[in-house]
């Protein structure tokens, strides 16, 4: 607040709106702090529950700190729930492999589409832009995947989403910003296109590669619907979020849209304690929180490249 006054004084010719300013600042601060509390409280509350002893938590009234500390909830989800462990392995696998393949595939195609002299530049760009707006829809895709034997397999997580128009656009916009002179001088020295891609463009694109990699990694980490739709009957291909869903669903009143019956809360709570659910939620969230500083930096870059092109 001190430097604010120092900064303001020489600029403010008239100080007539001082009171209006002060009142506004107070209300604005209260509003923004409230906003932050509403955002953070549920997460911290879940954290507190996850470290609380199970039977004690049923009494409720736990807010920011656990009442009776316990690590049993984490022990349970780590060692006594094979579904969660399998989900973790699959999710880790798809996140690593999926991120790597998607980055490589999108980067190479964006490189081609961003070459000014490329003969099919505009027609192929249109080919990919169309995919953004016209999609076949859930059922045609499901049936296609069955014909292709992609259902009941791990590869359904990796192959279909590998190239995406949105990621292509972000990468292409960034690559188009790199001066052509670099490419031209490399060509004069006899470098082929692949060489230019690998030795000139790729090193310059590190920030945008990081952005895309994080986009894709978060997508894979949070994915559950594909596991439910394509691999429902194959527990070896389950994902972490889908397992978390099953765990939460076994206790929550929401029993899915189709069943039409609501389990009463009291009866349901005996199945999985709220503390175990909290621990599973926190464990699933943990990698995102750990990566958050990076996410923040690169996501904002990606969003501004992709969103507000001028």
């Amino acid at each position: 607040m001190n430097d604010e006054i120092a900064l303001q004084k020489p600029l403010n010719h008239k100080r007539k709106m001082a009171t209006e300013d002060i009142i506004f600042t107070i209300f604005n601060t209260i509003f923004l702090v409230l906003f932050a509390v509403v955002t953070l409280y549920p997460v911290l509350n879940t954290l507190a529950y996850s470290f609380n002893e199970g039977n004690d938590a049923v009494r409720g009234g736990i807010h920011l700190l656990p009442r009776r500390w316990s690590l049993d909830n984490y022990k349970e989800i780590l060692f006594e729930r094979p579904g969660i462990r399998q989900g973790f392995i699959v999710t880790l696998g798809r996140t690593v492999l999926g991120t790597f393949t998607a980055l490589a595939a999108n980067a190479l195609l964006s490189f081609i589409l961003s070459r000014k002299k490329f003969l099919f530049k505009s027609s192929l760009s249109l080919f990919w832009v169309i995919t953004m707006y016209a999609s076949g829809g859930l059922i045609p895709v499901l049936i296609l995947f069955r014909y292709l034997h992609l259902t009941s397999s791990f590869w359904v997580y990796i192959i279909p989403g590998m190239v995406s128009a949105f990621n292509l656009m972000v990468l292409r916009t960034y690559m188009e910003g790199i001066p052509d002179s670099l490419e031209e001088s490399a060509q004069l020295e006899g470098a082929g296109y692949m060489r230019i891609f690998w030795s000139i463009i790729t090193p310059l694109c590190k920030p945008v590669y990081a952005t895309i990699a994080l986009f894709v990694a978060v997508y894979h980490w949070n994915a559950w619907f594909d596991a439910m739709l394509y691999n429902r009957f194959d527990p070896q291909f389950t994902t972490l979020q889908y397992e978390l869903r099953k765990l939460l669903d076994s206790v929550s009143a929401s029993t899915g849209q189709t069943s039409g019956t609501a389990v009463t809360e009291a009866a349901a709570n005996t199945i999985t304690p709220i503390t175990v659910r909290a621990a599973a939620t926190i464990a699933t969230m943990a990698p995102i929180i750990a990566l958050y500083p990076f996410l923040q930096r690169y996501f904002v870059t990606g969003l501004t490249i992709g969103g507000v092109k001028e």
Partner: peptide, 12 residues
């Protein structure tokens, strides 16, 4: 950055 699964758990 949180999945809808987690958000729904929190809302619930």
């Amino acid at each position: 950055f949180l999945s809808w699964i987690i958000v729904v758990a929190i809302v619930h």
